[in-house]
């Protein structure tokens, strides 16, 4: 201990204290302050960036969920639309079929009526033709029959005979 006290140099103590305190204030102003600020700022920046990334990730997840929902909705809509379309198609086909059937039967009915009318007309014409032909024939026969006197008399005779019988 005595040796220590003996060794103690007031000058060295003085210079050490003065230089150290001076160094402390100079470094505080020119080095530690700026360095610690820069480090703190950077750390804060990193923390903020991480937070932002976390937030972005969360938003992304939300967005993905939204997308999924939208997709599902779209799928469901497509499903219903397809179903509707199918139904419409079916009903349209059915309607068309009915209509066609009706049209066809109507056409057939019209045709049949026309055929009937034509037939009647043809028959009527035939009858008329036959009648006139018969009359013509009868006229010719009568003409030829009655061209001589004997025949006329004979006819009258037969006619009278018939009338007598009656």
């Amino acid at each position: 201990m005595e040796k220590l006290i003996n060794e103690f140099s007031v000058g060295l103590f003085f210079w050490q204290a003065v230089v150290f305190i001076l160094l402390l204030f100079l470094l505080k102003k020119f080095a530690w302050g700026p360095i610690l600020n820069a480090v703190n700022e950077r750390e804060q920046g990193i923390k903020d960036a991480l937070d932002a990334a976390q937030k972005a990730k969360l938003e992304m997840t939300n967005l993905q969920a939204d997308n999924e929902k939208l997709l599902q909705e779209a799928r469901a809509e497509r499903e219903t639309m397809l179903k509707e379309a199918r139904e419409i198609k079916a009903s349209m086909i059915a309607g068309a079929k009915d209509e066609a059937q009706a049209e066809a039967s109507k056409a057939i009915a019209g045709a049949q009526a026309t055929i009937e009318a034509e037939k009647k007309a043809a028959v009527a014409e035939l009858k008329q033709t036959v009648a006139s032909l018969s009359i013509d024939i009868a006229e010719k026969i009568v003409k030829s029959e009655l061209s001589n006197k004997d025949k006329q008399l004979e006819l009258v005779e037969t006619m009278l005979k018939d009338a007598n019988v009656n």
């Binding site: 230089v19 160094l23 470094l27 020119f30 080095a31 360095i35 820069a38 480090v39």
Partner: peptide
């Protein structure tokens, strides 16, 4: 002291 002052001052500047 000089060494520390210039070393850490330049370090602060590099930031």
């Amino acid at each position: 002291a000089f060494l520390m002052f210039f070393l850490f001052k330049s370090l602060a500047k590099s930031y």
